[in-house]
């Protein structure tokens, strides 16, 4: 669906996108995660034909972006970070205008607008001016405006910035619905929770480069980060500690009757608890620190996502 080869873009000598290679499959929700200034928006701007790369190629559904930008524009819909709507127009008029830009047949366009308004739950407010909408409602219209020409790929550039949690959940629901209908979604954000919740595949970007990509499990493996399970026992002898270590093949350290187990918690928790019961060990306290994208990013770059 999207194939990116050796893509580079520089601004005044600064490489905003540095030799990127990516492959995004049809029907994926592909999360592009990275701190501000990582190059995510530049990459989106290149794919959305807003700017040209210095070198490399991008293919959308097999169409070369460099030689056929207009054909590619019909394949992609873009949800910009800003609410790019006319405040003095109604939601319906905004959608009608943006739909016309793609030369969508008038009757089809009107039907599509009504369907989209129903999908985002704003059909009753369609004739109200955008300036009377709440931030979350504007965000939903902002998404609908990118879908009027029925694109195959939806590029979403931080679409939940400044949105309250309730509206954010509504937007997530909308994204999942659209994805179920077969839409491929490229989702950029610096909120790891959003990527963890929504995306099948994740690429972590930093300083213009993709530093790793895959599903969450693959990223954990690639970064060699493990969940941390801390078990505090009433009493545990050195022998019991050694038995513990011999019984499991992951790293275990101990301090003051407390064991730190570096493992996949979800996979190993039952076995660990059963073993403790079997060894008559009384657990006083359990604490788990699951591996997150934040930890992976920290491990890979030595920096926090929001540094």
């Amino acid at each position: 669906m999207i194939k990116i080869n050796n893509l580079t873009k520089s601004f005044n000598g600064f490489k905003a996108v540095n030799n990127i290679n990516l492959s995004i499959k049809k029907g994926e929700i592909f999360g592009l995660l990275g701190p501000n200034g990582a190059g995510k928006s530049t990459l989106i701007n290149i794919i959305s034909t807003l700017i040209k790369s210095n070198s490399g190629t991008v293919f959308l559904n097999g169409i070369d972006l460099n030689s056929n930008p207009n054909d590619c524009k019909q394949i992609i819909g873009v949800v910009p970070q800003e609410i790019s709507l006319y405040d003095n127009f109604s939601a319906y008029d905004n959608l009608l205008f943006f739909g016309k830009l793609y030369k969508v047949d008038s009757t089809i366009l009107k039907t599509r607008i009504n369907k989209l308004l129903a999908l985002i739950g704003l059909e009753n407010r369609k004739n109200d001016l955008i300036k009377t909408y709440s931030g979350g409602m504007k965000r939903r219209i902002n998404i609908a405006a990118a879908l009027l020409h029925n694109p195959d790929i939806l590029l979403m550039d931080e679409p939940t910035v400044g949105v309250d949690p309730q509206s954010r959940n509504q937007i997530f629901g909308l994204i999942e619905t659209l994805n179920k209908k077969g839409l491929t979604i490229v989702y950029t954000t610096h909120y790891m929770e959003e990527v963890e919740r929504l995306c099948n595949t994740i690429a972590i970007m930093d300083k213009g480069k993709i530093i790793t990509h895959g599903n969450l499990e693959e990223l954990k493996n690639q970064s060699k980060t493990k969940d941390l399970l801390k078990l505090k026992f009433n009493v545990i002898s050195n022998e019991q500690i050694n038995n513990f270590k011999n019984n499991f093949d992951f790293e275990i350290t101990n301090t003051n009757n407390e064991l730190s187990l570096f493992c996949n918690i979800e996979k190993n928790l039952n076995a660990i608890l059963n073993y403790s019961v079997k060894e008559s060990l009384i657990i006083k306290n359990i604490q788990q620190n699951k591996t997150t994208l934040e930890t992976i990013f920290l491990k890979l770059t030595g920096r926090k996502l929001r540094d």
Partner: peptide, 13 residues
């Protein structure tokens, strides 16, 4: 400034 120009540029215009 509002970003609508960007949206115009995303289109085949």
């Amino acid at each position: 400034e509002s970003g609508t120009l960007k949206r115009l540029l995303y289109s085949p215009l």
